[in-house]
Amino acid sequence: MKSAVIVFPGSNCDRDMAVAIEQASGVKPVMLWHRETEIPAGIDLIAVPGGFSYGDYLRSGAMASRSPVMAAVKAAADKGVMVLGVCNGFQVLTESGLLPGALMRNAGIHFVCRDVALTVENSQSAFTSRYQAGEQITIPVAHHDGNYFADAVTLDWLEGEGRVAFRYAESVNGSARNIAGILNEGGNVLGMMPHPERACEPAHGNTDGARMFAGLVEGMMASA
Protein backbone atom coordinates (compact mmCIF):
# COMPACT_ATOMS: atom_id res chain seq x y z
CA MET A 1 0.00 0.00 0.00
CA LYS A 2 1.42 3.38 -1.01
CA SER A 3 0.59 6.53 0.88
CA ALA A 4 1.41 10.20 0.99
CA VAL A 5 1.36 12.75 3.80
CA ILE A 6 0.83 16.38 2.75
CA VAL A 7 3.10 18.93 4.42
CA PHE A 8 2.11 22.60 4.57
CA PRO A 9 4.17 25.35 6.16
CA GLY A 10 2.96 25.09 9.75
CA SER A 11 1.94 21.41 9.70
CA ASN A 12 3.13 19.80 12.92
CA CYS A 13 1.54 16.33 12.99
CA ASP A 14 2.90 15.23 9.62
CA ARG A 15 5.67 13.06 11.04
CA ASP A 16 3.42 11.46 13.69
CA MET A 17 1.00 10.65 10.88
CA ALA A 18 3.79 9.13 8.79
CA VAL A 19 4.91 6.95 11.71
CA ALA A 20 1.35 5.71 12.32
CA ILE A 21 0.85 4.82 8.66
CA GLU A 22 4.24 3.14 8.40
CA GLN A 23 3.58 1.06 11.50
CA ALA A 24 0.31 -0.18 10.03
CA SER A 25 1.44 -0.71 6.44
CA GLY A 26 5.16 -1.40 6.73
CA VAL A 27 5.80 1.21 4.04
CA LYS A 28 7.09 4.74 4.63
CA PRO A 29 4.70 7.35 3.19
CA VAL A 30 5.92 9.90 0.66
CA MET A 31 6.00 13.38 2.22
CA LEU A 32 4.43 15.84 -0.24
CA TRP A 33 5.20 19.55 0.06
CA HIS A 34 2.32 21.99 -0.51
CA ARG A 35 3.81 23.31 -3.76
CA GLU A 36 3.58 19.91 -5.47
CA THR A 37 1.04 19.84 -8.25
CA GLU A 38 0.76 16.09 -8.71
CA ILE A 39 0.15 13.09 -6.52
CA PRO A 40 2.66 10.35 -7.44
CA ALA A 41 1.13 7.46 -9.37
CA GLY A 42 -0.13 4.50 -7.38
CA ILE A 43 -0.86 6.32 -4.12
CA ASP A 44 -3.74 4.62 -2.28
CA LEU A 45 -4.01 6.88 0.76
CA ILE A 46 -3.40 10.60 1.24
CA ALA A 47 -3.23 11.98 4.77
CA VAL A 48 -3.77 15.68 5.43
CA PRO A 49 -2.22 16.14 8.87
CA GLY A 50 -2.83 18.41 11.83
CA GLY A 51 -1.03 21.60 12.67
CA PHE A 52 -1.41 25.28 11.93
CA SER A 53 -1.00 25.45 8.17
CA TYR A 54 -0.12 28.99 7.04
CA GLY A 55 -0.45 30.11 10.65
CA ASP A 56 -4.24 29.68 10.49
CA TYR A 57 -4.27 32.98 8.54
CA LEU A 58 -7.70 34.18 7.41
CA ARG A 59 -9.45 31.01 8.70
CA SER A 60 -8.06 27.64 9.84
CA GLY A 61 -7.33 25.64 6.70
CA ALA A 62 -8.34 28.45 4.31
CA MET A 63 -4.95 29.13 2.76
CA ALA A 64 -3.89 25.47 2.68
CA SER A 65 -7.08 24.45 0.90
CA ARG A 66 -6.16 26.81 -1.98
CA SER A 67 -2.54 25.60 -2.23
CA PRO A 68 -1.36 23.82 -5.39
CA VAL A 69 -1.20 20.35 -3.84
CA MET A 70 -4.85 20.48 -2.77
CA ALA A 71 -6.06 20.67 -6.36
CA ALA A 72 -4.22 17.38 -6.90
CA VAL A 73 -5.67 15.91 -3.69
CA LYS A 74 -9.19 16.85 -4.85
CA ALA A 75 -8.62 15.21 -8.23
CA ALA A 76 -7.31 12.07 -6.50
CA ALA A 77 -10.26 11.98 -4.08
CA ASP A 78 -12.65 12.25 -7.04
CA LYS A 79 -10.99 9.14 -8.47
CA GLY A 80 -11.60 7.24 -5.23
CA VAL A 81 -8.18 7.57 -3.55
CA MET A 82 -8.61 7.41 0.24
CA VAL A 83 -8.10 10.76 1.98
CA LEU A 84 -7.80 11.14 5.74
CA GLY A 85 -7.83 14.65 7.22
CA VAL A 86 -7.08 15.03 10.91
CA CYS A 87 -7.60 18.22 12.92
CA ASN A 88 -6.18 21.00 10.72
CA GLY A 89 -6.48 18.42 7.93
CA PHE A 90 -10.26 18.24 8.58
CA GLN A 91 -10.41 22.04 8.42
CA VAL A 92 -8.52 21.95 5.11
CA LEU A 93 -10.96 19.36 3.72
CA THR A 94 -14.05 21.41 4.63
CA GLU A 95 -12.46 24.61 3.30
CA SER A 96 -11.62 22.85 0.04
CA GLY A 97 -15.17 21.58 -0.36
CA LEU A 98 -14.23 17.89 -0.13
CA LEU A 99 -16.41 17.69 2.98
CA PRO A 100 -19.49 19.81 3.82
CA GLY A 101 -19.78 22.26 6.70
CA ALA A 102 -17.18 24.35 8.50
CA LEU A 103 -15.10 24.21 11.68
CA MET A 104 -15.52 27.23 13.87
CA ARG A 105 -13.96 28.53 17.07
CA ASN A 106 -14.69 26.19 20.03
CA ALA A 107 -17.88 27.28 21.77
CA GLY A 108 -16.00 27.64 25.06
CA ILE A 109 -13.31 29.85 23.39
CA HIS A 110 -10.49 27.79 24.94
CA PHE A 111 -8.03 25.57 23.09
CA VAL A 112 -8.97 22.02 24.12
CA CYS A 113 -6.11 19.53 24.49
CA ARG A 114 -7.00 16.25 26.20
CA ASP A 115 -8.26 12.70 25.73
CA VAL A 116 -11.93 12.57 24.77
CA ALA A 117 -14.46 9.76 24.55
CA LEU A 118 -15.85 9.14 21.06
CA THR A 119 -18.71 6.96 19.94
CA VAL A 120 -18.16 5.10 16.69
CA GLU A 121 -21.30 5.81 14.66
CA ASN A 122 -20.40 4.04 11.44
CA SER A 123 -18.24 0.91 11.46
CA GLN A 124 -18.91 0.11 7.80
CA SER A 125 -16.45 2.60 6.30
CA ALA A 126 -12.93 1.74 5.16
CA PHE A 127 -11.63 3.91 8.00
CA THR A 128 -13.69 2.36 10.77
CA SER A 129 -13.90 -1.33 9.88
CA ARG A 130 -11.92 -2.40 12.96
CA TYR A 131 -14.42 -0.72 15.29
CA GLN A 132 -17.89 -1.80 16.40
CA ALA A 133 -20.82 0.53 15.78
CA GLY A 134 -21.75 2.15 19.08
CA GLU A 135 -18.38 1.36 20.59
CA GLN A 136 -16.79 4.00 22.76
CA ILE A 137 -13.13 4.75 22.14
CA THR A 138 -10.66 7.29 23.50
CA ILE A 139 -8.70 9.57 21.18
CA PRO A 140 -6.94 12.84 22.07
CA VAL A 141 -8.00 16.20 20.66
CA ALA A 142 -5.90 19.37 20.44
CA HIS A 143 -7.70 22.22 18.71
CA HIS A 144 -9.07 25.72 18.91
CA ASP A 145 -11.42 25.52 15.94
CA GLY A 146 -13.21 22.20 16.18
CA ASN A 147 -16.78 23.37 16.53
CA TYR A 148 -18.44 21.66 13.57
CA PHE A 149 -21.14 23.70 11.87
CA ALA A 150 -23.50 22.87 9.04
CA ASP A 151 -27.11 23.86 8.40
CA ALA A 152 -29.87 21.54 9.59
CA VAL A 153 -30.54 20.20 6.09
CA THR A 154 -26.88 19.22 5.67
CA LEU A 155 -26.76 17.65 9.15
CA ASP A 156 -29.90 15.59 8.44
CA TRP A 157 -28.43 14.54 5.09
CA LEU A 158 -25.15 13.43 6.73
CA GLU A 159 -26.97 11.53 9.45
CA GLY A 160 -29.42 9.97 7.01
CA GLU A 161 -26.60 8.57 4.90
CA GLY A 162 -24.62 7.30 7.89
CA ARG A 163 -21.84 9.73 7.16
CA VAL A 164 -21.22 10.73 10.76
CA ALA A 165 -18.25 8.47 11.52
CA PHE A 166 -17.54 9.62 15.08
CA ARG A 167 -19.44 11.61 17.66
CA TYR A 168 -18.11 13.09 20.90
CA ALA A 169 -19.49 11.13 23.85
CA GLU A 170 -18.93 14.18 26.05
CA SER A 171 -19.07 17.94 25.71
CA VAL A 172 -15.91 19.11 23.90
CA ASN A 173 -16.27 22.11 21.59
CA GLY A 174 -19.92 22.84 20.86
CA SER A 175 -20.00 20.83 17.60
CA ALA A 176 -23.41 20.48 15.97
CA ARG A 177 -24.90 17.16 17.11
CA ASN A 178 -21.55 16.41 18.77
CA ILE A 179 -20.03 15.54 15.40
CA ALA A 180 -16.31 14.68 15.63
CA GLY A 181 -15.76 13.15 12.19
CA ILE A 182 -17.61 12.84 8.88
CA LEU A 183 -17.31 10.93 5.62
CA ASN A 184 -17.85 12.17 2.08
CA GLU A 185 -20.53 10.73 -0.17
CA GLY A 186 -18.20 8.10 -1.63
CA GLY A 187 -16.92 7.01 1.78
CA ASN A 188 -13.31 7.52 0.66
CA VAL A 189 -12.74 10.83 2.47
CA LEU A 190 -12.82 11.10 6.27
CA GLY A 191 -12.27 14.28 8.24
CA MET A 192 -12.02 14.21 12.02
CA MET A 193 -10.84 16.58 14.74
CA PRO A 194 -9.43 13.92 17.16
CA HIS A 195 -5.93 12.61 16.47
CA PRO A 196 -5.87 8.82 15.89
CA GLU A 197 -2.13 9.02 15.14
CA ARG A 198 -1.59 10.09 18.75
CA ALA A 199 -3.18 6.91 20.11
CA CYS A 200 -1.21 4.23 18.29
CA GLU A 201 1.34 2.82 20.74
CA PRO A 202 1.20 1.66 24.37
CA ALA A 203 3.54 4.54 25.17
CA HIS A 204 0.83 6.96 23.96
CA GLY A 205 -1.43 5.69 26.74
CA ASN A 206 -3.85 3.89 24.46
CA THR A 207 -3.97 2.29 21.03
CA ASP A 208 -7.55 2.99 19.92
CA GLY A 209 -6.25 5.04 17.00
CA ALA A 210 -4.04 2.24 15.68
CA ARG A 211 -7.15 0.29 14.73
CA MET A 212 -8.11 2.96 12.21
CA PHE A 213 -4.80 2.59 10.37
CA ALA A 214 -4.84 -1.21 10.68
CA GLY A 215 -8.37 -1.36 9.26
CA LEU A 216 -7.49 1.00 6.42
CA VAL A 217 -4.44 -1.02 5.43
CA GLU A 218 -6.31 -4.30 5.71
CA GLY A 219 -9.10 -3.00 3.46
CA MET A 220 -6.70 -1.70 0.86
CA MET A 221 -4.64 -4.89 0.81
CA ALA A 222 -7.84 -6.90 0.31
CA SER A 223 -8.99 -4.73 -2.59
CA ALA A 224 -5.53 -4.50 -4.22
Binding site: R59, A62, R66, P100, A150
Partner: peptide, 9 residues
Protein backbone atom coordinates in the same frame (compact mmCIF):
# COMPACT_ATOMS: atom_id res chain seq x y z
CA UNK B 1 -16.55 33.97 -2.71
CA UNK B 2 -13.43 31.92 -3.46
CA UNK B 3 -11.22 32.89 -0.55
CA UNK B 4 -11.95 35.91 1.61
CA UNK B 5 -15.21 34.57 3.04
CA UNK B 6 -16.34 31.04 3.77
CA UNK B 7 -19.91 31.30 2.54
CA UNK B 8 -20.96 28.26 4.59
CA UNK B 9 -20.76 30.44 7.69
Amino acid sequence: AKLLANTVI
